[in-house]
Design a protein around this nucleic acid. Structure first.
Length: 288
DNA sequence: AGCTCTTCCTGAAAGC
DNA sequence: TGCTTTCAGGAAGAGC
């Protein structure tokens, strides 16, 4: 599942390939995951890619105006791509066979192609112009690796479960199920603890854990659990370092207790019942 | 406000 | 063996 480290890895790859390139043609397969297909069809052919950025789990290609990028009156726009669960955005030569479920092909002026494949089509693709861009950004919270500790701590002043809060893209952008579980495990915090009830010490531990894990995961090219690959089609390796996610029944690497799986915020949540103590209410409820 | 449930979709895995 | 059922999950929306 592509989360911040996976998307960052893809973006770094695209950044080496795309800026300065002009899109020469667009071909589409299934389009039910694309908002306003006609905008892509009118905006992309002839557009020049100026830069590649990441906003949380979104990949953003900034496009300048038409042929030669001047004087056409074409407004600057952004192509936003969200990989969802199984999205793959890759750059390759046209003779390379498609991944199954490839639905978007963008031909580039260096005779290569930018392709989007997504078996489940939980991903998203859409065009946003300069006027619409602030509205897009306003729905997202701060970047986990850029938020100062004071702001991080302030965002925790809510009565929601910490896991739900970390997954909420309007609070912090980019964390998903894997990295919330890994961060909570490292910080020894139970996923069902109320965010506002975390002590200063616990908040600091969580902040440090989250940053360390994201940074390390980026270094290792992200986690390849199901379909994730980078922009060259290669997997990441951080899944080998997971301590909680996907390890139900296996021993905690810190204390040896069996990792448990429960549903929190509608998601599978893996944690160590010994290192990550349940909140008071839950412990009492379990004893009863 | 916060929590659960539902929807989208496909392939892998479990069940019979 | 082979068919059918279940499950997973990012995000958004409904309902409580």
């Amino acid at each position: 599942m592509p989360e911040l480290p996976e998307v960052e890895t893809v973006v770094r790859g695209l950044r080496a390939a795309l800026p300065g390139r002009t899109i020469t043609a667009l071909r589409l397969g299934k389009t039910d995951f694309i908002e306003h297909v006609e905008r892509l069809e009118s905006a992309l052919p002839g557009a020049r890619i100026e830069e590649v950025r990441r906003f949380g789990k979104f990949i953003a290609l900034r496009l300048a105006g038409g042929p030669a990028g001047n004087g056409t009156g074409r407004p600057q726009q952004w192509l936003l791509v969200h990989l969802g669960m199984t999205g793959r955005l890759t750059v390759c030569r046209p003779d390379v066979p498609d991944w199954p479920h490839t639905h978007v092909w963008l031909a580039l002026d260096d005779a290569r192609e930018l392709r989007y494949a997504d078996p489940r089509r939980f991903g998203q693709m859409r065009m946003v112009d300069e006027a619409g861009f602030p509205a897009f950004l306003s729905r997202l919270g701060g970047e986990p690796l850029e938020v100062p500790f004071e702001d991080f701590s302030a965002a925790l002043e809510r009565r929601v479960m910490i896991k739900a809060l970390l997954l909420d893209q309007s609070v912090f952008r980019g964390l998903g199920n894997i990295y919330t579980d890994e961060s909570l495990w490292r910080a020894r915090i139970h996923p069902q603890r109320k965010a506002a009830q975390l002590s200063g010490r616990e908040r600091a531990a969580l902040y440090r854990a989250m940053r360390k894990i994201l940074a390390t995961a980026i270094q290792m090219g992200g986690s390849s659990i199901s379909d994730y690959v980078d922009s060259d089609g290669n997997p990441g390796f951080f899944q080998l370092r997971h301590n909680a996610y996907g390890r139900e029944g296996r021993p905690c690497r810190r204390c040896g207790a069996k990792i448990r799986r429960i549903i929190v915020a509608g998601r599978s949540s893996y944690f160590c019942p010994r290192c990550q103590r349940a909140p008071r209410g839950r412990r009492a409820a379990r004893r009863a």
